[in-house]
Design a protein around this nucleic acid. Sequence first.
RNA 1: GUCCCUAUCGUCUAGAGGCCUAGGACACCGGGUUUUCAUCCCGGCAACCGGGGUUCGAAUCCCCGUGGGGAUGCCA
Length: 562
Amino acid sequence: MKISGTICGRPVRVRFAPSPTGQVHVGNIRTAIFNWLYARGTEGKFLVRVEDTDRERSTSEAVEKLFECMSWLGLDYDEEPIFQSGRLSDHVFAAERLLREGKAYKGFHEQAQGVGEPTVFKIPWETDGNPSVRTRGEVAIDVSPEEKLTIDFRGLTCSVPGKNEKPMPFSASLAGFHGLRLFSADGRMLFDMESALDGIFHECKSHEFFKVSRMTFERREVFFDDMVKGTLSKPLDTMKDLVVLRSDGSPVFHLANVCDDIAQQITCVIRGDDHIENTYRHIFLFQALSSDAPSYAHLPMIVNDSGKPYSKRDGNVFAGEFREQGFLPDALFNFLALLGWSPGDGREKMTKPEMAAAFSLPRVLGSPAKFDIAKLAKLNGQYIAEMTTQHFIDTIAGFAKETARERVLQWMLNHPAKFAKAATLMQIRTRILSDCDEWGFFFPGTITYDPKALRKNLREDSRDAIEALRVIFAEFAADEFSAERLEAATRGLEGSRGLKEGLLNRPLRVAVTGRDSGPDLMLVLEMIGKHEVLDRLAALPPAPPLEEEEISAQKQWSTPSG
RNA sequence: GUCCCUAUCGUCUAGAGGCCUAGGACACCGGGUUUUCAUCCCGGCAACCGGGGUUCGAAUCCCCGUGGGGAUGCCA
């Protein structure tokens, strides 16, 4: 049973609106995922809008990467994507309309000669009957009397006492100051804006005051019900008018974004909570353009260990990096969906349809989440473990091709049967696909030795035993080189030398594979084959000396603490 | 400075006033299985930021702090 696909009767339409900057950040991916989940869970539409107005960074290559990333993750979308750059005339037209209707004005500051003036959207003065604005009551604010206070249709500018009474510049749109009155230090009223309103708005009158030490006004605030965070609000007297068209006539993000949301008939904007401040202003823009503001859901950010936005410095950030390291798209999708959201019943590993069915915006957390790569790796390993062996082999093969892993490709090409067998043995211990780089010991050729393993497991006595095993193994016919016989021979030597059963396994493993852990040793030996095993046993390198780092680490360990 | 958002184990989270002796997962530590490792199973460690209220009762509601983040652009 699916949730109804409508809000107030309108079918759900959400969008993913990334800027194509070459790489797709995990934060953006998660935003896309939440949008997608919401659309799919409500039988709504998931749309894409490429916000490519930053021409410096937006290249066709970047756009291509973006779509490639979405398809990799299985983020299928419903209508033809739109490109913001192609909608320039619409944006400029909207700005002209705002100007014509007196909802915007030209010029903000004194501009340099010869340069045009920006178009500025005015936070509307008149808000009676506006369902997004409410009154919060009378407030009084201290003003620094030594600084000038000016009022005109563009807003109020003054200074307010900060720390140590030091005047801090303050400016805001006029819309926040209904019923404004200015007072001097001795409590005398200097100005009552009510009577001056006509002059300010119709004759562009400007007022200047000195020695104002207090102002009172009726505070009003813009508010909306965020589907994630609940009711959010901001006083109008803390807001400024915003530029919608630059001096050169190009639209800024706010205008383009709102126009396009209107054009795409977006019913719900799901985006990062770094946009909350924008939303307060966008609501007025929607209204000014005769459109109902969509509902909003602001997602908490993904942060690093220090609580800062997760960035390049913190490890993998881009979809491409996860892909190259061998994370599976479904695992990454699943993991990211669980950052800030949970189905509430303890389920973690879920399919896309399961997530879509369980997803709901009110269940999304309001607080930021840290990116824990270890948990992703575990989940990725689970996805790998649950593949059929054939699927795993195909996945590794595809991955090796895609990431141009020459060595791995050579193994596949030259020893297909052995490769398949190696994959079978390694699947359960693979967490990320790039782990396949470590499979070299299965195949003929030089192997690398873990120096620590070599030192620990191949001292003189065990080297002697290994040599004895080599001689025994050499007696085997090639077709007798089976796990059972190898096992029997090894156990036999241990018996005759009075060694504990199994004691030779580790030295033997290190001698042949270069490492001290891995799949069943005898199976591995059988796979590698008589010829190669004997070669390696004969060419055993000496144990390397302790490296300096390790020595100092050992010293630290042996130092009694406290 | 001002404004906005935010606060449960190290991490992701469950938690809608009494089901809470705060549950699960990852990580970590022990034990079992595996002659290793991994998987799997069992167990352990480990949290309600602080202070005030409201209430018979607060992790949960309110206020004030504090910490973290964001905004304060003719960036997106």
